[in-house]
Design a protein around this nucleic acid. Structure first.
Lengths: 259, 259
DNA sequence: CGGCGCGTCTAACATATGTTAGTGGCCTGC
DNA sequence: GCAGGCCACTAACATATGTTAGACGCGCCG
């Protein structure tokens, strides 16, 4: 599979992307088949669809606003987010992309990308050609259903974020945020035996996601630490007491389930 | 088209629903063909799909959480919302359903309904049988694309609400909310010559959508009135100065466009 | 016709969160 | 090995929004 040509999907403005030929695509197939059961031959076909994998440095746009979807992008490693910058120069994040997730679902309805997607840490991205995808989808409709379920879960996450910002205080918000990332990381096998997972973002960036100031994010993290619910540092989050954290957040993970 | 049997989609607990046999289904077709251009015969087929139309009183659930999608529901008249009730007994709305919109998109991926949908005022709902829909979709894939675009716009609305709650103050939030409803109402021809449209919800309910207290919603409405941007009352909103209101909100309606 | 419930509106006061400012640690590049 | 920059962290103070309480008007129902 896969050419070795380094092609940047949105032009060469996003400099230090490099080709990364020997990447584990498994996470993508794992993710989709958790959303809808796939036959072995379907999984194989799906895996072969992921053409070029390249790495993107931290804090670079992977996709951006108002561009028509010309291919489907899949995150293979790292952490990324949807965001929009307002008039006020304030930036608000509206969702997260984990390994195995599609970066955007515009390709499903040949729409434009509605919000930019940015890498948080260093990231590896895979590309899927839309012509190939639609050819495959015609023969294996399950693959399309799985993708639509992924979109449906994505929508549920956005709604849950609305709830956080609209109705939860800072402590609940942060706890809920950590519960979600913990849960989602676990689904794709990215939580290790010490209950640690990748959280390569700064406190300021968490603030941009949760609608809180950096200072207040920090205060709130201290509280969760004091209660021995989490540990955090060096881009790694550790869940010390999952049940306790979920209780603080009133977390109900059903919205992450495919059906 | 359409049987005259009164069938409540979620059981008879939602009492005062009555059959409403001679309903204008046009708004649904208008909405979908604005999302993706449909041929006349496709429009006709689509219109015939809407089987039973019934009315639901104000403040009743139309769909509720965790139920598998057994049919597709379309709002034909009135105003409805997605919401979730938290532990704290606080309710947060996460989106609005206008005439012509699908109530929920779970049917696209045979998922459960992730959030309850409630009527705000009195409402008329149409049903589409999923077997019939999928039979039609096989022959007329454009109809499916239109539905997926509707889902994509719905997702964009949710993200925009995240932005409101996360990064806009009360005045901008309310202004943005009114701009969106104005815009969406206009798309389906529901703004009259006086720039009035249906807004049958209380100030307390607006607070539940925008994450603000009733008192503060009221204060904020006063401000918009004082600036001669809007008028409001009796479930009707009037946009007195659309440009001014959009400026306050930094409203950019592109997220409502299908592609 | 009178009372009750609901929705709007206002005032006074309470508080969660924002802002500004600054320290100290750590890494990076010269 | 030093300088500069970024990030975590803290303190003091500022403010947008929440809360409580109550008046007023209106429509509905007995």
């Amino acid at each position: 599979m896969s050419s070795f040509t380094s092609v940047d999907p949105v032009g060469s403005a996003y400099a230090p992307n490099t080709v990364h030929p020997h990447i584990e695509h498994g996470v993508f197939v794992r993710r989709l088949s958790a959303l809808y059961p796939l036959q072995p031959h379907e999984s194989k076909t799906l895996e072969a669809l992921v053409e070029t994998a390249y790495t993107v440095a931290a804090h670079r746009d992977i996709l951006h606003e108002q561009q028509p979807a010309k291919e489907a992008l899949v995150l293979l490693e790292g952490l990324a987010c949807h965001y929009k910058v307002l008039d006020s120069a304030r930036r608000q994040m509206t969702g997260f992309v984990l390994p195995g997730d599609f970066c955007d679902f515009g390709f499903l309805s040949s729409s434009v990308t509605r919000q930019s997607v940015m890498s948080l840490g260093k990231v590896v991205v895979g590309r899927i050609d839309l012509r190939q995808l639609s050819a495959v989808a015609d023969k294996m409709p399950n693959i399309l259903v799985a993708a639509m379920r992924a979109a449906s879960v994505d929508q549920a996450c956005a709604r849950e974020l609305v709830i956080s910002l609209g109705a939860r205080d800072a402590l609940q918000r942060l706890a809920h945020f950590l519960c979600e990332l913990h849960h989602r990381s676990r689904i794709v096998g990215l939580v290790n035996a010490n209950a640690e997972f990748d959280l390569s973002m700064t406190q300021a960036e968490m603030g941009e996601a949760l609608g809180l100031s950096t200072v207040h994010i920090n205060r709130t993290i201290q509280q969760l630490r004091k209660r021995k619910l989490i540990a955090m540092g060096q881009g790694i989050a550790t869940i010390l007491d999952a049940a306790g954290l979920e209780a603080v957040a009133s977390f109900d993970g059903r919205y992450l389930r495919p059906n």
